[in-house]
């Protein structure tokens, strides 16, 4: 985590939210507090792609699945996708 930065604005440190953990974090979220972009960790792999390479159809269900554990600001204002209030 200490070397990670937001791929878009290069801001660091980023926030880490852990949802499921075995030996590694299996599901979680990395958040850039500056631009409010959120990046999922799925199957142990952080997915830190630019907006244009993200898939809304895969990312929105992830946001819905973990919405109780995700800060409200990210759920409703996060980039590149967010849920409607």
């Amino acid at each position: 985590m200490e070397i990670l930065a937001c791929p878009i604005d290069k801001y660091h440190p980023l926030e880490l939210h852990v949802f499921e953990e075995k030996d590694e974090i299996t599901e979680g979220l990395i958040v850039c507090p500056k631009c409010l972009r959120w990046y999922p960790i799925r199957d142990e792999i952080p997915e830190m792609l630019p907006d244009e390479l993200r898939k809304e159809a895969e990312d929105l269900p992830f946001l819905k699945k973990w919405r109780e554990k995700i800060p409200e600001k990210i759920v409703f204002e996060g980039k590149p996708f967010s849920l409607k209030r």
Binding site: I3, C6, K10, I45, M48
Partner: peptide
């Protein structure tokens, strides 16, 4: 491992 675009590497400078 990190999924990323080589033009937008998610790392701090000089890492």
């Amino acid at each position: 491992l990190v999924q990323a675009d080589a033009d937008y590497l998610p790392f701090r400078d000089d890492s």
